[in-house]
Design a protein around this nucleic acid. Sequence first.
DNA 1: GCCGTTTTCGGCCCGACTGTTTTCAGTCG
Length: 584
Amino acid sequence: MAEPTRDSLADVLDEIALLLELKGENPFKIRAYRNGAEVVRSFDGDILQRARDGELKGIKGIGDALQEKLHELASTGHLEFHENLKAEFPEGLFELFDVQGLGPKKVKALYEELKIASLGALKRAAEAGKIATLAGFGKKSEEKILAALAQKERFAGRFLLAEVAPHAERILAELRAHPAVSRAEVAGSYRRAKETVHDLDFLVATRKPAELTAHFAALDGIEEVIAHGDTKASIRLENGLQCDLRAISNAEWPFALMYFSGSKEHNVSLRQRALKQDLTLNEYHLAPVDGATRDDPTGKIKDEAGIYRELGLAYVDPALRENRGEIEAAESGDLPVLLEQENLRGTFHNHTTESDGRSTLAEMAAAARGLGFAYLGISDHSKSSFQANGLDEERLAAQVAAIAALNEDFDGFRLFAGTEVDILKDGSLDFADDVLATLDYCVASVHASFSMPEKEMTKRIIRAMENPHVTMMGHLTGRLLLRREPYPVNHDKIIDCAAETNTIIELNCSSKRMDMDWRWWHRARDKGVRCSINPDAHHVDHLQALHFGVRVARKGWLRREDVLNTLPLDEVSRWLQTPKDRRA
DNA sequence: GCCGTTTTCGGCCCGACTGTTTTCAGTCG
């Protein structure tokens, strides 16, 4: 078995939860495993080492049983309890859970009654009409299973944040235009700025809910109406994106908006907090629990901030609602003042037609000025990236000269000459130091030899960051969302190295990257690592990605002062000219 | 399986929709 990691520990706990569900175990026990997985994922510290050392005492949500299991898992790489559970069911059974409408009870019935343990077997049984004969299933269930399987084949089921944005805005505008709607919003993971979303959750405040669900179910561009009731409807767009609508009253708005914005974990935490004050929180109200003598605050709450206030908390921005410390920070008054899009003064890491971009140097400069930026960093590929038409030393020198010539004519705007230099297999760079020294800055990225063990890849990247000419680390894990897994790196070590060497880590906000992942920024920030929000633009239109970059940066708790490209031109110029070991 | 300033036992967040039922279980969010 591969070396255990934080994620593999959490994944095993989640898998145990699923297996216990299949066995029909106590639902609260199942929840304890799920909760434990979440605690492991978001724990602030080296939980892997603590698990190895058997030092997990005192972590909320990890009791005696989970402590022992995590210790066994971290120190030996496997868990007997887990292995035994797994042995009770065939491997393929797990993929059945990905079919919409199938939960543990139905999967169990399909397996026990019809010996179905794979998507293929499920399809064959449905087509043969066998499923409709099962108790608890009927003709409709069988049709739904076939439809869900077809849908699964056509669409991955998740979408990039930037990809769904136009649909979200279009539908939102149509809902707001309806005369019976007083307020409308997109809630859910879209509002929380998750890098990928599974569906869009719309919320409207109206006195005529049934009219709105009907309006929603009749929108343009719908492939299928999945469900349509008096207060709730679900549709699927032609691109496969599922959209849900909830219609509620004006008075319920703040409660519903909070509820449907999630995350689920954030909401659960708030509910538990409410219960300590004898209050029950749901999508309709924040009211006294049965039998409590206290007053009902529901009527005086007009917005989400009012709910937080009633619970003794500062307002929590939707991007932070992931139950990763934001509630504690809201209680103690330590929530960050988050970065705003208008704080950005420029951006680094952009390509031109000189390598694999589709806009020229002059076009990129004009586009950046059009957005009101004071500077734009150009960083075309280096020679090893021959697939991307990377520049050699000679072409790079010519580009530096071309940039200098353009800068002659600018007033209050500047192009910075840089490179996106390849980090070679051994951690050395594709350009020699004396070449890098001729540039304003340097982004270093991995573009080849992805399949290395974590240790080696981490060493490779650290060696690059230790170079005095490397300003920032580009797309740290090389992931392509929904397409390519990240290569394994030790984030903790890289963050520590970035802090020590004053190397910036990029938040590459190309919609398919969003790399480094938002989950790591809070920790990086606390260690003093600075971020640069870069679109990795290969066309003038790609500069728009910065909008989503800012939203994801906010999700990573980043403030204006944590982000290099919020500095005005004179300060950022001075900063780049200061030798790396003397930069603040 | 976890947790505790009402508790070391008895709670654990909860409502809408669908389909298969004839009063409700399962799934989803």
